[in-house]
Design a protein around this nucleic acid. Sequence first.
DNA 1: TTTTAAGCGAGACGGTACGTCGTGTCTTGTT
DNA 2: AACAAGACACGACGTACCGTCTCGCTTAAAA
Lengths: 192, 192, 192, 192
Amino acid sequence: METSRRGRPRNADADRAILEATRDLLVADGYERLTMQAIASRAGVARQTVYRRWPSKARIVADAVLSGHLSPGFDLPTDASASLRDWLHRAAMQLTDAAHLAVIRALAAAAVESDDDASRLYAAFTGPGRRQLLSLLEAGVASGDLRADADLEAAADAILGAVLYTALARNPPQTEHLDALADVLLSGLTAR
Amino acid sequence: METSRRGRPRNADADRAILEATRDLLVADGYERLTMQAIASRAGVARQTVYRRWPSKARIVADAVLSGHLSPGFDLPTDASASLRDWLHRAAMQLTDAAHLAVIRALAAAAVESDDDASRLYAAFTGPGRRQLLSLLEAGVASGDLRADADLEAAADAILGAVLYTALARNPPQTEHLDALADVLLSGLTAR
Amino acid sequence: METSRRGRPRNADADRAILEATRDLLVADGYERLTMQAIASRAGVARQTVYRRWPSKARIVADAVLSGHLSPGFDLPTDASASLRDWLHRAAMQLTDAAHLAVIRALAAAAVESDDDASRLYAAFTGPGRRQLLSLLEAGVASGDLRADADLEAAADAILGAVLYTALARNPPQTEHLDALADVLLSGLTAR
Amino acid sequence: METSRRGRPRNADADRAILEATRDLLVADGYERLTMQAIASRAGVARQTVYRRWPSKARIVADAVLSGHLSPGFDLPTDASASLRDWLHRAAMQLTDAAHLAVIRALAAAAVESDDDASRLYAAFTGPGRRQLLSLLEAGVASGDLRADADLEAAADAILGAVLYTALARNPPQTEHLDALADVLLSGLTAR
DNA sequence: TTTTAAGCGAGACGGTACGTCGTGTCTTGTT
DNA sequence: AACAAGACACGACGTACCGTCTCGCTTAAAA
């Protein structure tokens, strides 16, 4: 048991306040305009208190992502009736709002420290959406609408990648394009 | 048209040298560590000579992307025998090398700083691969292997997005995962 | 001849402005409260411009002293009629005003970098007063009032040291004390 | 008089250890490089224990001076045979060692930061030497070597000031210069 | 004996200045 | 005009100290 440390304990609220301040400022101003001083001020904390916990701006942002402070909520009903097409539309809509675009772009900068950090960041960012999507797919399999022998993990990656890419490269995404996307993913490309 | 200007003409080599220096440094150190001084030094040029041509770091990177200096070569044969599965494997392999990952991450940073739309940069970056992929798909349709009524643009987006996302979030990508990805894209998710 | 240097030449006015700003702020607020930012601001210059010329606060102050920006004026007439007693009174008066006390105290801090810098700083600070005093003594010798075989350099040191010490340790100096001081210096201690 | 307090009594050793640590570090590194943490560490004490006794760095140094921890020993015999010239030489020698120079310079810094008057600190620092010098002068008067009507306080100031100034501004002091100094102080400047 | 008030080591905290680095602009002399 | 070189205004970075504030533990006098 080594929880009884010496000295004044760190203010646990500060950690949270700093991550939240980071999220708010990142979403509002973007990574480049994000400042340690601004983070500290908004968190109601001295600059040194931030540095005592994180060694750099990139690490704070990385932690904000990893701790889920920056993942999109995807506040959609995950009931059985929600079709994949609906999910694609809503996810694309949410990802293309200014806040989430800012975060997606920050992921790149935050991953600058280490090369394989990037994977963890992207995985953490997409985690909630991915879990949601997986349960949607599982429901589809259970109801017999989707085939049982598909690799659902791979399917989730394909869907997430497609919607992320569309959000980034086809901003704003068009309805017909998303419908065609859903068609490809559901029906496949093979002639029959 | 007054093409003959007075004074000393610009050194045409400098443009190319600067873009190449930008690419090399970007790939080696990432966007955050990229500095104008480093670009100029590596290009054998004064800092002002860079600023005479581009107004900011973001614009150089954007131009390097738009001019194709940073797009992946995808030097794969596009012959009829190349299956979609092969393409996925090779593309994922190429995108996960350090150089391309650095560029992919830089796209976001460059987009947010320059006036250019992120979508233009992503489109430019993925352009060559996309064109290659489309001709592969068209060949598949022509040979009757792929169904004729699929939206090939949407299919290309799905495939590109999936492979990009896999490269970013599942670094390095596993063989089985890519195979499962190909299966989903070819066969679709719908039960039949 | 190597005066033709390359690149934009340094703004010569800035050097002077920085030294003057240093003097003004030092005299007004003291060494401890002196700030690089304050110096720069008052000189109408960026902080980096100060650092380009001097590596530290101590060095600026040292240079301000060595360049005579901080030496007391001792604006007394040096005519033959000025007696040593008068000089002592006026010098003590001037050295005990707030401005000069601040400078004297700053000498110690400014000398922190190197050990024998201190000598040069004290010598520079007292230089003008010393020269004035020497010509006063020489005039006394010429007029026959003072003995010709005294070491005037040593005498000047004794007088300067005495008045400096009195100013520091007996702040404010009393008239009678200064008179007694003059008496000792003029008549000596030896019984006759 | 309520000398018996409740609670754990203060460690009396700490006071002394702190003052000694202050002296050692001051002499070794100078006032500017002196830090509270270093004082505490060297004294084997927590930083707070220092602050419980002194409110600031300047006050510790001031107290170290006032308590005599930093005054030069002037361990000279004060017997009748010791001439003023001998005293000057030995005092100059002692004051110009690195330790005492550091202290002399620290006086100014400590004085400007603490509420204490500079004069009190200088008086305390020079106190032992001054008392020694005065008894030397009184012995000279008693023996008839020195004149009886001189203001010995003023004479002591002149001598102390001269030797201090020489130590500071003419480091290291030359033998001939000190001899000439003694000559001026003993014989005076007046022609006869 | 048991309180209880203070001392103490340790270290977090709000501030402030430091010295460095990068950006984008400007000003020299030279080509 | 372009160019190499480098100064300039601006502003963020990460570090170091200051003096204050909790923590848990220890120590002795008071209850």
